[in-house]
């Protein structure tokens, strides 16, 4: 928080006293002022971005979950499918985004696809590696108890993957917002991406930066939500840190 504040302060001082024109580098105070003035337009354009981010992320999450289970149950699939997904990660977004818009139009579908494309693989890897992190002895013990593969997956492999899942979630949620904005940049009726593009073309860097501020705030909120959900979903993590190896507090 302090470092962000200092950075903004330095920027404000430089923009005010260096004599640089506000059409090149506007001061943060001007960005904030313009953001307030244009808050309705910004909010109006943030809605489609949020929708694309969340829908795209939901799609990639469901797909990653289904496929991670498939890979976990049929190991050979991993070698067959992973090269394809790794290649999908090397596609430059700059090139692929306009093509996807060209193929699927200016609607919501190409945005969802691009968000899914950038977030799917990190989530898949997190889940698959999470399953593999299951302690071997827990598996052996469950087998000795008479548990089958499905039972072992539900009782041990799935919960073991939770820390990996949330680590992947935190990374991909930031990608997701960037992916949605990029998709809109390539062509959209409404959205933060197209808003930035129009502001730039109108020589309004203050409005570009205002939109950047909104997208950053959006990312931070989503990030904070994942941290919150993780805390609720994994109460044992905090319990272990709070009272490591001590007795009951009666």
């Amino acid at each position: 928080m302090i470092s962000v504040g200092l950075l903004l302060l330095a920027w404000e001082l430089y923009a005010t006293y260096s004599g640089i024109r506000p059409t090149i580098l506007p001061a943060p105070s001007r960005v904030f002022e313009q953001a307030t003035l244009n808050r309705e337009a910004l909010a109006d354009n943030a809605v489609p971005t949020i929708r694309a981010t969340l829908l795209g992320f939901a799609c990639s999450l469901s797909a990653a979950f289904a496929l991670s289970m498939l890979v976990d149950f049929f190991q050979p699939l991993r070698r067959a499918l992973f090269p394809v997904f790794i290649i999908s990660q090397t596609l430059p977004l700059v090139a692929i985004a306009p093509l996807v818009v060209l193929w699927f139009g200016f609607g919501l579908a190409p945005k969802i696809m691009l968000v899914a494309l950038v977030t799917f693989f990190p989530m898949l890897v997190a889940l698959v590696e999470g399953y593999e992190s299951t302690e071997a002895e827990i598996g052996q013990m469950l087998r000795a108890m008479g548990a089958g593969r499905w039972r072992i997956f539900l009782l041990a492999r799935l919960p073991s993957a939770l820390p990996y899942f949330f680590a992947g979630l935190r990374i991909s949620i930031t990608y997701a917002v960037v992916g949605a904005i990029f998709a809109e940049y390539a062509g959209a009726a409404k959205g933060l991406g197209i808003y930035m593009l129009n502001a730039k073309n109108n020589f309004r860097p203050d409005l570009v930066l205002a939109a950047v501020g909104v997208s950053a705030a959006l990312t931070l909120i989503l990030f904070g939500l994942t941290v919150l959900v993780q805390r609720l979903a994994m109460p044992w993590e905090r319990a272990g840190k709070k009272t490591g190896g001590t007795g009951p507090r009666r």
Partner: peptide, 14 residues
């Protein structure tokens, strides 16, 4: 027939 206790406790942290 067997109840098996592995080397480390294999308690599930969750």
């Amino acid at each position: 027939h067997f109840a098996f206790m592995p080397q480390r406790d294999a308690l599930m942290p969750w």
